[in-house]
Design a protein around this nucleic acid. Sequence first.
DNA 1: TTGTACGCGTTATCAT
DNA 2: ATGATAACGCGTACAA
Lengths: 359, 359
Amino acid sequence: MLSAWGRPQTPAMPKAPPAPTPPTDRKVTLGMVARASGVSPATVSRILNGTAVVSDEKRTAVDRAIAELGFVPNPIARGLAGGRTLSAGVVTQSIDSPFYGVALRGIEEELGRVGYRPLFMSGHWDPAEEHRCIEELLARRVDGLIVLTGRLGDDELCRVAQSLPTVITGRTLAAPGLYALDFDDCEGARLATEHLLSLGHRRIAFIAGDPSHPDAQQRLLGYRAALQTAGVRYRAALVRPARFFEESGRIAVERLLASGEPFSAIFAANDQMAFGAALALYERGLRVPDDVSLVGFDDLAGAAHVIPPLTTVHHPGYDIGRIAAACLLELLAGNVPSARLPAPALVVRASTRTAAAEA
Amino acid sequence: MLSAWGRPQTPAMPKAPPAPTPPTDRKVTLGMVARASGVSPATVSRILNGTAVVSDEKRTAVDRAIAELGFVPNPIARGLAGGRTLSAGVVTQSIDSPFYGVALRGIEEELGRVGYRPLFMSGHWDPAEEHRCIEELLARRVDGLIVLTGRLGDDELCRVAQSLPTVITGRTLAAPGLYALDFDDCEGARLATEHLLSLGHRRIAFIAGDPSHPDAQQRLLGYRAALQTAGVRYRAALVRPARFFEESGRIAVERLLASGEPFSAIFAANDQMAFGAALALYERGLRVPDDVSLVGFDDLAGAAHVIPPLTTVHHPGYDIGRIAAACLLELLAGNVPSARLPAPALVVRASTRTAAAEA
DNA sequence: TTGTACGCGTTATCAT
DNA sequence: ATGATAACGCGTACAA
């Protein structure tokens, strides 16, 4: 292995061929194909779309012409004439979000299987911006829409869905043209809290995320539900709002520490805040999990490789994207989707352990 | 702060208005605006595009009609007629890459300032796939192209640039219609290594990244250059290839440890591998920075919040995206871009310290 | 300054 | 089964 690095050598060329390079001249139109193969444009179109039965001889002639000229249909013209653009609008919250990123990948892959392309736009958790995104997407004549959670009103979503097949994640909602895919955040949070409780923790702090955020609300509910089931009193002083980023989680824990309120475990409403929480503890000389147990939520790609590897609730971003896209495709095909999201599952790693004897 | 969580209350509504909701009926065409305002379609078009001077009375009449009807120009039709789609193709490597993600955000923001939209496609570091992405983007008639690094041959890139304004990052290249934005990876790696050397480290391991990856090659060069300048012998046994992911970095360090080759510091060619390296050390009971100093490359969003906060080379992904987009816009406007990328800079955090006395 | 007429590349609706 | 012909919504010569 190392030898390739130790001594000079001819640069390792990537092994893919130097590009197939068909005559793919741009500007080859359907009309040119028609003329070249001695048929009418309509026939070429029919062959391309399988719209009608065409005689075999014409078909082969056209196929040959297409190959020889390197014809590529123009989606723009297709969109104008046929009303389909083979593209789907996707409203995400931030194109570089570590969680939604994998969802976008799922969407891209699933859509790509049938020639559809996603058009991504970021709403930044702002209803007004999300509204603008949708307007723009509508203007660009996307064939369908996927909205990843977001804060848009249910009513507006339903309105949009009337004119455009729409899949929404992160909420439960039913309307014509709309399909909702809800993840059970509450149950996930319950699992996380229950895990901590089963390890003997009783004073479990909760870094809650933005109170106006629907996911955050559900996770808080799950936390409270688990506490209640276990007969552990809910203490408002152990619950800290934050803003879903590392720094925010860190500050929340610093304040918690400063407040003097005792706790032996922390459940953060997402992994990023959990990372920040871990840092705050570290800076105070507190060790995870020996002094404080820590659980996150999302199971980001990095969660398995932080120190110590983070126990967290698996939030299947990739599947969410893939399934949302599959459902949109169903809607576009005139079918009624029936797919559902996987249930949340706890991933136990190294950031949690049994509680020391407690007061 | 906490009170909002502790007791029930009316749910905090996001403060944005419930959507402006103009009469925005879809299907309002330019022709309808023309009729409604008593002018010709051409005049409406001219007003929309500022193509010619129009009398004030007609202009106001048209503006009013546009507002009243809620007219939105159809980009599809615009694309067909005018040849411009107001969209730019972006070939990235993976839509969920932690590094390129912020670059995409930069692109999205910069392009959005002038009404342009990015069309993202993932090439997955495969020249054949990148080729397909470009074909698809060409078919969709994007006005320009941004390619984020990638492995496509220089020759093919130049060919594409002849028919489509193109900005490429991660290499130096000049051709008509093409603008290249190269980041000095070599210098960045030199800075990192130099930092370690200045702290007294002499046996510095290098987790190198994929040898076939251009960035990896440059970073190796920088590492060697710094060593040479300092008169420290290059040891092939301290250099380990890996694949730019956490797990890969972890395995590389495990092997390094198993090899028995002594070292007091590790420089990883990207942050993700550095995270993996830190984990491998942790699992062996080795502490960062007390036992081993660690430096990464990229300065990912998470680098400041891992334990301990990672010393790393700042790789300005956001700026790269923003600047690439700005350059493409220049190209589109017929100008010659001249922007350059910021120089690499070392960010010293808590993962490095002076070397203990060495053998 | 403004309007007319045509074209962009494709699909859809008629005929045949 | 196939071919004219008319949209699709807009930009742009060209003419006025």
